[in-house]
């Protein structure tokens, strides 16, 4: 079994970049990222990306993400910068004291290439690149549709859009994490679970990279979980911080894929887990389930890490980095 230490991306901005970007961009909603930033703003983002990649390398993580410094609107970013999307008032980001601009889709979700451009830049700096993208279900739930007119059609369109974005990723991307918190926070209707899984399959089908679907703030419903097991993804991710019992039950009862991703570090608390604690949590999960052995266990925080101040974010990276590598049985 191989333990791969990584994250779900969406990092806090390093102090220097945070201050310079606030000065260059401003504090109001019309000042946020639009996709056509000036050269001086782009330069700060490039430096922030390099800084965040260096932090991951220094911490010893097995996969490095681009850091998503430009994602002012968190997981809604890919739509917030799209040419056929208008951003409106700020709305609450899940059950957090965080807000993002409501992206209102007003036209076809054509190919954008925004994510691929940032990953292209990052690929020059690391051989172990991982991408993190919102899942189609969560992204469709974070947005407002004024164009497709039907929630099923909209979900499929968001899936096609994301598949196109992922297809354009550079070859250096080894792993794509598809983040689907809404699969845990929402109760999906009959049929909706199948369509959510189908949209994820569309994304998974668009790349040769390993695709990991990860939900958090709870876990998947049983039927949804079954549909996800039928997709082309390499691994499903479980939040062991907020839902260890429910997640473990799902895997005990219904199994999971050959690889698994485990949210074992609290992405929303400054208390830093020791490498021993992280390893104990992985071992605890393995001890609970009858399966013989996983190909790969991805060890991750349970959420994005932008909730944390920079020093604690860095400390969590180091703790995770210390558990990676091949584990001898």
């Amino acid at each position: 079994m191989t333990v791969v230490s990584t994250t779900l991306g969406l990092f806090p901005l390093p102090d220097d970049a945070r201050e310079r970007l606030a000065d260059l961009k401003g504090h109001q909603k019309e000042d946020l990222v639009s996709g056509d930033e000036s050269a001086d703003i782009e330069a700060v983002y490039d430096e922030a990306r390099d800084d965040l990649l260096t932090r991951q390398t220094d911490a010893g993580l097995d996969r490095a993400v681009e850091g998503q410094a430009r994602w002012d609107d968190m997981l809604a970013h890919p739509l917030a910068v799209h040419e056929n999307v208008r951003t409106e008032g700020i709305v609450r980001y899940y059950d957090n004291n965080n807000f993002y601009r409501d992206p209102v889709v007003t036209g076809d979700l054509t190919h954008s290439g925004d994510l691929a451009r940032d990953l292209e830049k990052a690929s020059a700096r690391t051989d172990d690149l991982q991408a993190a993208v919102p899942g189609p279900y969560s992204l469709s739930r974070l947005a407002t549709d004024e164009h497709y007119g039907d929630s099923q059609e909209f979900l499929a369109a968001v899936g096609d859009f994301l598949a196109g974005e992922v297809e354009a990723f550079p070859d250096a991307v080894e792993t794509v994490f598809v983040l689907e918190p809404s699969l845990a926070t929402d109760s999906l209707d009959d049929g909706e679970d199948e369509r959510a899984a189908a949209a994820i399959d569309t994304v998974a089908d668009s790349t040769d990279a390993e695709v990991v679907v990860q939900s958090y703030w709870g876990t998947y419903g049983e039927k949804l979980h079954a549909h996800l097991l039928d997709t082309q993804v390499s691994a499903l991710g479980y939040d062991l911080v907020t839902a260890h019992d429910d997640a473990t039950y799902l895997v005990q009862e219904y199994g999971t894929l050959d690889s698994v991703s485990l949210g074992v570090v609290d992405g929303q608390n400054t208390l830093v887990e020791s490498p021993d604690t992280i390893e104990e949590r992985i071992e605890w999960f393995e001890s609970q389930i009858p399966v013989s052995e996983f190909d790969t266990v991805y060890a991750t925080p349970n959420t994005e890490l932008f909730y944390l101040p920079v020093n604690k974010f860095q400390a969590k990276l180091r703790a995770l980095g210390a558990v990676g590598g091949d584990a001898d049985e």
Partner: peptide, 17 residues
């Protein structure tokens, strides 16, 4: 206090622990 955390956009507050 460990430093500022994001609330939205470039608006932060010193969320204490």
């Amino acid at each position: 206090f460990n430093g500022p955390v994001k609330v939205w956009g470039h608006n932060y507050f010193d969320k204490p622990s």
